[in-house]
Design a binder for these strands. Structure first.
Length: 262
DNA sequence: CTAGATGTTAAGGT
DNA sequence: CACCTTAACATCTA
């Protein structure tokens, strides 16, 4: 799940459930998710503090503690968070478990262990060190076009490159290109000014709609390709079968009729 | 049993 | 040097 809209949805969920509660206990259940910190240092760094503020950059989530540090969360491919009261509701692949002073729990779960959690002093330095580009919801049109138009590789690869623009993943890259009528293998440097304007506008619109729908694909517009990204999926604009290919080593769906720009 | 699944990164190649 | 592509990571399911 976790592309920009998913992470934004987690952020809002955390804002409404988990801020301003003292963390009485922190338990790292699996060390593989730790990013440059020991189990003990993360647990001790969290215990006794409260989360007071949250932020998101691309697919990364930041939670500020009363000690002026940030817990940075990356969800990998299978990560999610859950706030719950009854211990029997604890998710299966919980890797970090917090208990608040109201006896509710906070779980960070990730089945495939591709997620990461760290504790950092400075959010801006971290973003810089990771080489992240501007957040997809904050990037200006001029920067969007300037960064993308020189790229020689395939359009989809460039959209998914986090160092150019942060937040677009495999699923939403397919949606942006479908809504823009651009074939995913088109070379980015062959697109026109008009194409970049369309992609920029569609990117904003799609993320906006996905976030408002809380990422529930049942609530997505009928014209979206995301719910149809399956074997035998049909184009929502014409009933022709979608094509499946690989870009960047990732499964890519597109409509050969509506994405002929190449 | 094998292939593939929303992500990132290191290593190799242009 | 800047950019592009691929494999690997760990686990589970179709």
């Amino acid at each position: 799940m976790p592309e920009l809209p998913d992470v934004e949805t987690f952020k809002r969920y955390i804002d409404s459930t988990s801020l301003h509660k003292t963390i009485e206990k922190a338990q790292v259940m699996n060390k593989k998710i730790l990013e440059e910190i020991s189990k003990n240092n993360l647990e001790q760094g969290l215990q006794g503090t409260r989360f007071v503020e949250s932020d998101r950059h691309g697919k990364y989530l930041f939670l500020k503690t009363t000690e002026n540090q940030w817990m940075v969360v990356h969800f990998g491919m299978t990560g999610f968070v859950k706030y719950f009261k009854d211990e029997s509701d604890k998710p299966n692949h919980t890797r970090l478990l917090l208990r608040f002073d109201n006896n509710y729990f906070f779980s960070f779960a990730c089945q495939r262990m591709l997620g990461k959690i760290g504790l950092i002093q400075n959010k801006e330095d971290y973003i810089e060190k990771k080489g992240m580009g501007a957040d997809a919801l904050e990037v200006s049109y001029d920067l969007f076009e300037e960064k993308l138009k020189k790229r020689r590789g395939m359009a989809k690869s460039a959209l998914m490159n986090q160092s150019i623009i942060s937040g677009i993943g495999n699923i939403y890259a397919d949606e942006i290109l479908f809504q823009s009528g651009i074939h995913p293998k088109t070379k980015m440097n062959q697109l026109t000014e008009n194409d970049f304007q369309t992609m920029y506008q569609k990117m904003q619109e799609i993320f906006d709609i996905a976030i408002k729908a809380k990422v529930d694909t049942d609530e997505f517009p009928e014209t979206y390709i995301i719910p149809n990204r399956t074997k035998d999926g049909l184009c929502p604009k014409g009933d022709k079968k979608l094509k499946k290919t690989k870009v960047n080593g990732r499964t890519t769906y597109f409509c050969p009729v509506h994405q002929d720009k190449k």
